[in-house]
């Protein structure tokens, strides 16, 4: 049976891991390569590395980091942040990334999804969507949640799929950093709407939240950051808990 995936997410700035709480107030959580290796040993199924550096120098540092991750980590990993063109995708895949995640650049230029998918295959193209529940609607946001758009989550996710996205990584800004659980209702709607895998993100604070994301939200994978980085929930313990509660995990 296909296992539900647990994905630690590492935000990287200038070669170091950081984690935002509601997208501000960063805390340092270590060396990204070593952290990734530890997670794979604990039983993480995949990793996501997000480059939150804005500078050109930072991008070069990140590409070097991707090469080191590829050399030392034996599970798949996705990279995101600052991917605006096919050349960026080519550079990161050549450095050893398995998938790329695009967010603002996809909203600004939806054609980019089709280009990535057409050139490298749908499995490479993860479309990340940051959305906030506002006046009865899920509104998509740009630039790490700083700029609102007129796009709505479900329509946009469907369009991304039609354009060739291989997965949707949905982060609920209404839940991110507050540790009260994932946006399970919205996740369940995505599951019904799409025929590509959905990764739940934003809101994990307890093991039960992962169970709900799979059972109620029907997510294919669940992503989290701080609960893993600060050792609040060891990945191996989470896997045991999920297995004991009837979820198929590796």
């Amino acid at each position: 049976m296909l296992a539900k995936r647990i994905i630690p997410c590492l935000d990287v700035k200038d070669g170091k891991t950081v984690k935002g709480v509601n997208f501000v107030n960063f805390r340092d959580a270590g060396d990204p390569v070593e952290l990734g290796r530890q997670y794979s040993l604990q039983g993480a199924d995949e990793l996501v590395y997000l480059d939150i550096t804005a500078s050109h120098e930072g991008r070069k540092t990140f590409t070097e980091l991707v090469k080191q991750v590829a050399a030392q980590v034996n599970i798949p990993f996705t990279v995101g942040g600052g991917i605006n063109a096919l050349a960026d995708v080519d550079r990161l895949l050549n450095a050893g990334a398995d998938k790329v995640s695009i967010n603002s650049s996809a909203l600004r230029n939806p054609e980019l999804i089709s280009e990535i998918s057409g050139n490298f295959g749908a499995q490479v193209c993860v479309v990340a969507v940051d959305a906030k529940y506002d006046d009865g609607e899920w509104v998509c946001y740009l630039n790490g949640g700083r700029i609102s758009t007129t796009r709505k989550l479900f329509e946009w996710a469907k369009e991304a799929q039609e354009r060739g996205a291989g997965e949707i990584l949905f982060t609920s800004m209404s839940h991110d950093g507050v540790k009260t659980g994932y946006a399970n209702e919205a996740l369940a709607v995505l599951h019904e709407t799409l025929n590509i895998p959905v990764i739940a993100s934003g809101g994990a604070g307890a093991k039960e939240h992962f169970l709900d994301a799979f059972n109620v939200g029907k997510a294919d994978a669940a992503l989290a950051a701080s609960v893993f980085h600060f050792g609040e929930i060891p990945v191996s313990e989470l896997k045991t808990y999920l297995r004991d509660n009837g979820v198929c995990v590796r």
Binding site: L2, G166, I196, P197, R250
Partner: peptide, 16 residues
């Protein structure tokens, strides 16, 4: 050929 919404294509992830 996916017979229902339970099966996503591509088959992506860890299987036995």
């Amino acid at each position: 050929v996916a017979p229902s919404a339970e099966f996503k294509v591509p088959h992506m992830g860890w299987n036995q």
